[in-house]
Design a protein around this nucleic acid. Structure first.
Lengths: 294, 294
DNA sequence: GTTCCGCATGAATCGATAG
DNA sequence: ACTATCGATTCATGCGGAA
């Protein structure tokens, strides 16, 4: 399989035709935003964005396993004082072609660019749109668990009588609880809001995201030995993180400069295959907790 | 003007026909979400949601001033494992009828509903979609400025009500104290992500959103003496906050029980209204300062 | 008048079972 | 096959009363 663990130079729409069906477990990508990166991708006009994207999405659909997931990092730009609709139109177009719009995660960018405009504030969030081919897909929730909040320390220290048993009495929703179930539980499941700062060290890559962003989704949707595809790999962050986590990567980019940069960054990286089963389980945990307790 | 400062019982689509054109500065509302609140509003099927909403939106458009703003708090529910598309379809429908989709704010709900599912995490955010009639609209950014710095960050993360509500009981004394210490220094504009917890403790009613949510938008998009409309006023939170801030309110609800509750809650608050007679430019700034520096 | 601490609550969702 | 109902699961917060 000579496409595995490669950074490939070319248009992903064409490159991907060389790949077999159902060979990828996760597609994680941050495509060039509309009208951005004019000097690199030629600048896709917002009105043309869906038409530009969908032929590529068809290749994504073909190479993605039925248990796989496609995570799209994107945000609509402002055009003539309005948020442009190309992102939500893209969601509708994807659904028309069979994709399931499973979820929309929110990336809260803790440090955004400063600025002031008369009619809007700084934009501190981006979308991470999750698409799937089937309702049943692989999800490894335990790999991204975070420490329980500080409330638990005092709450669970002294349990009341009602805490010892399941408390059924509820208004409406039939929601019961048994607090004693939580005793000794250190980790809880996260939610669909990610608090990450944008990476300060700029690498000439205009769509740079922090390594924790692909890391979280790679751990959530793949296992060691799986394959991660980034069809707009840019400076190679997704591929780099995948390799570090013992996943195979496929990175594609149209710009030769980015391809060179990605290959350079990946040169020293050995894919950490099965040996490092749970290499950085603590990493995200600490990161998320730090934010939460502030 | 007998519609001002009233909680009106009825369907907003009909009630609003009684109001003149261009009489409202801000519409802030959280309509019943699709298939939610079945026991009160009957439950609108997700597939019918846009058709249900748009006739009401036409009345909103008519009564809103051209400099006014419409802020819609909403979130799509999950249907058959997918996020339903009624919210994004609503945005497209609104634009087809002349609304501008100016911005989408994020409400990060710090305490979300518990639960665990094999294919998704807990939902910790909702949309606050900003619509306008014109590119030029009233926005008073200084009224929601926040301090910068470490202590400010924790304060911003906890815009919570406890201190503010308790301070409001002492309205009149200590108003605007030490404000001059803070004006002009260490202030920064906020961004489009709001971190607020839902209010969930035992009151007689279920407040759908915390008071800080309407408070922030009322201060941002209106001045003292302006008029705020909530066509799905529910337990009256929007009207209550508007009155506290010296704005006129118009609250409408279909459910008689909610109307009674809203009127009850507003009965004790009407003392705050006379202040509205003397609007000052500094009012909002001072108030914002006081809340944060306490 | 503060601070501390217990606790009910919340725009939920899935899968299985029943009609 | 397709819809309706039901049980199971879960975590952080603000409020109110006590100290």
């Amino acid at each position: 399989m000579d496409y595995l663990d490669q950074i490939i130079h070319g248009d992903c729409e064409e490159v991907l035709t060389q790949l077999p069906d159902n060979c990828v477990d996760l597609i994680f990508t941050s495509p060039p935003y509309a009208d951005q990166r004019k000097n690199t991708y030629g600048g896709i006009h917002p009105d043309d964005y869906v038409d530009w994207f969908m032929p590529k999405a068809r290749q994504f659909y073909r190479v993605l396993k039925s248990t796989g997931t496609f995570v799209l990092n994107i945000k609509e730009r402002v055009v003539k004082g309005e948020r442009h609709t190309y992102v939500i139109e893209l969601i509708l177009a994807m659904r028309r072609e069979g994709w399931l719009w499973t979820e929309e995660f929110m990336w809260h960018k803790k440090n955004s660019y400063p600025g002031k405009w008369p009619n809007r504030f700084r934009d501190n969030w981006e979308r991470l749109i999750q698409f799937n081919k089937k309702r049943k897909f692989n999800m490894y929730q335990e790999s991204v668990m975070v420490p329980v909040g500080d409330w638990a320390k005092t709450r669970l220290a002294n349990l009341s009588d009602t805490d010892q048993i399941r408390d059924e009495s509820n208004v409406g929703s039939g929601f019961g609880k048994n607090v004693s179930n939580w005793v000794g539980r250190d980790l809880v499941y996260p939610n669909n809001v990610l608090h990450l700062a944008t990476e300060c060290a700029n690498r000439n890559h205009s769509a740079a995201f922090p390594t924790d962003l692909p890391r979280w989704f790679i751990k959530l949707f793949t296992e060691v030995g799986d394959t991660v595809l980034d069809p707009f790999v840019g400076s190679g962050t997704t591929a780099l993180v995948a390799a570090e986590l013992g996943r195979h990567y496929i990175g594609i980019d149209l710009m030769a400069d980015y391809v060179d940069l990605s290959r350079e960054r990946l040169a020293g990286i050995q894919i950490a295959l099965p040996i490092a089963a749970e290499p950085t389980a603590e990493y995200d945990v600490c990161e998320a907790q730090e934010e939460r307790t502030e």
